[in-house]
């Protein structure tokens, strides 16, 4: 048999980017602990629609923790309190019967609220478009042994590449800094020979775009790493600093 709990939700409701938002309280009865957090919100929305009220708007897509669409600041933590977990991987079994759950959107000048819990994260896309790619002609895929890459480098590049660009880093940061995201995207390429060719240009372009979009300055608090659903390390931030300063000094 399913265990069920009764919960109280405090949800941020905001009609549009320019409107003033407020918290709305909802009581939900008999929520199965096997539900995911997003299924619980679906249940809330079904009830709201049945009552002819506006459903709560929130981002979601793959619901298996790889697309980076889900967000939500749950009880003071991006993606909830569990570490290495996206909101869609969070389950209601992690909450107690009678608990009040506060759900807020990402709050950062770089991520303006679109509506309710949905924020505009296109700033991250713009940073990627500024240089988060390789444009050199690599030719056809080479034989694996033609370009040997040390295992530790490959592992670190892979760990950096696990960033899903959800924005939890900037949301968690007291400075609203996007450095963890940018450093992961710079690192995943800087660690590999294919990415080295444009490494200097990439670091400069992506940092310039990040600054232009109004993200804050990193003060190495490490809140981003602690809240990152993929556990991306702040060692990447040191690499970004290194890459950027090296590139600037060369100019």
């Amino acid at each position: 048999m399913d265990k069920t709990i009764n919960i109280t939700l405090k949800v941020w409701r905001q009609k549009g980017p320019k409107e003033k938002g407020h918290f709305e309280t909802y009581n939900l009865q008999n929520i199965s602990t096997n539900m995911s957090f997003l299924e619980m919100l679906d249940t809330l929305n079904e009830q709201l629609v049945a009552k002819h009220e506006e459903p709560v708007v929130f981002d979601h897509d793959c619901r298996e923790g790889i697309c980076g669409m889900c967000s939500l600041y749950i009880n003071g933590h991006p993606h909830g309190r569990d570490s290495h977990t996206t909101t869609c991987q969070l389950h209601m079994r992690r909450f107690k019967d009678g608990e009040t759950i506060t759900i807020e959107p990402w709050r950062s000048a770089g991520f303006p609220v679109v509506r309710d819990l949905m924020v505009d994260r296109s700033a991250y896309d713009k940073i990627m478009q500024a240089g988060g790619y390789t444009s050199i002609r690599c030719g056809a895929a080479q034989d694996a042994n033609a370009l040997p890459i040390p295992k530790p480098d490959a592992d670190e590049a892979m760990d950096a590449a696990s960033c899903i660009g959800c924005g939890a880093c900037a949301a968690a940061c007291k400075n609203g800094s996007a450095m963890l995201f940018v450093s992961a995207k710079v690192s995943q390429l800087a660690l590999l020979p294919q990415g080295r060719v444009e490494a200097a240009r990439r670091a400069k372009a992506m940092v310039a775009k990040m600054d232009e979009l109004g993200f804050g300055n990193c003060t190495n608090t490490g809140a981003c790493e602690a809240e990152c659903p993929k556990g991306v390390s702040i060692a990447n931030i040191a690499r970004l600093n290194r890459e950027y300063l090296k590139a600037k000094l060369k100019d």
Binding site: Y73, S108, P112, K174, G216
Partner: peptide, 12 residues
Amino acid sequence: NRKARGNDRYAV
């Protein structure tokens, strides 16, 4: 950095 945090603060 305070400007980058935005106008609304987190409630929790």
